[in-house]
């Protein structure tokens, strides 16, 4: 079972009705799937919400979960991104130690990764970083050596790539 484990990103358009997120999440938790991250927010159409979730597990069980999500009365559409090209981004707010000797290094990292400093205090900077998994991981690793105090990540938002022509 472990060998078949893969990471999956799934996009879901739902009607924004009470309990809809619980219904989606219940289909995963009921099958012992852990959700690595999940985002949900209204789209440009009022009353329609896009949920993006990342999970990992066995392919066969996952395809059953995708079908079950599709079957929910409130589900309008499911995108299984394991079958299509997609772009994804997430945002992280990272509070990092920024003292006399490390401030310049923090700012260099901010510059290289096109992050932003959104809050400053005598001992800490809070940074806003946007990117895909590997970019956030790289920033976290570099800042980790300086000293991360707290971190809040949004989880992933994903859209399928449009056809090029």
């Amino acid at each position: 079972m472990e060998n078949n484990k893969q990471r999956y990103t799934i996009g879901i358009l739902v009607q924004n009705r009470p309990g809809v997120l619980a219904r989606v999440v219940g289909l995963l938790s009921g099958r012992g799937f852990n959700i690595e991250n999940i985002t949900a927010a209204e789209t440009n159409e009022p009353g329609i919400t896009r949920i993006t979730l990342v999970t990992s597990g066995d392919r066969r069980v996952l395809s059953q979960i995708v079908k079950q999500i599709n079957k929910l009365v409130d589900t309008l559409k499911v995108f299984d991104f394991s079958e299509t090209e997609f772009v994804d981004r997430e945002m992280a707010l990272i509070k990092v130690r920024a003292e006399e000797g490390t401030r310049a290094e923090v700012l260099r990292i901010v510059d290289i990764f096109r992050a932003k400093v959104v809050d400053v205090s005598p001992h800490f900077y809070t940074l806003e970083v946007t990117g895909n998994d590997s970019k956030i991981a790289a920033v976290m690793e570099l800042l980790g050596q300086i000293g991360i105090v707290e971190i809040a990540r949004t989880g992933k938002a994903a859209l399928a790539r449009s056809k090029k022509h």
């Binding site: 009470p18 309990g19 619980a22 219904r23 219940g26 009921g30 009365v73």
Partner: peptide, 13 residues
């Protein structure tokens, strides 16, 4: 609603 979510086709409050 919460208790029966996995064993109903749908539910309404």
């Amino acid at each position: 609603i919460g208790i029966t979510r996995p064993c109903t086709k749908h539910s309404y409050l």
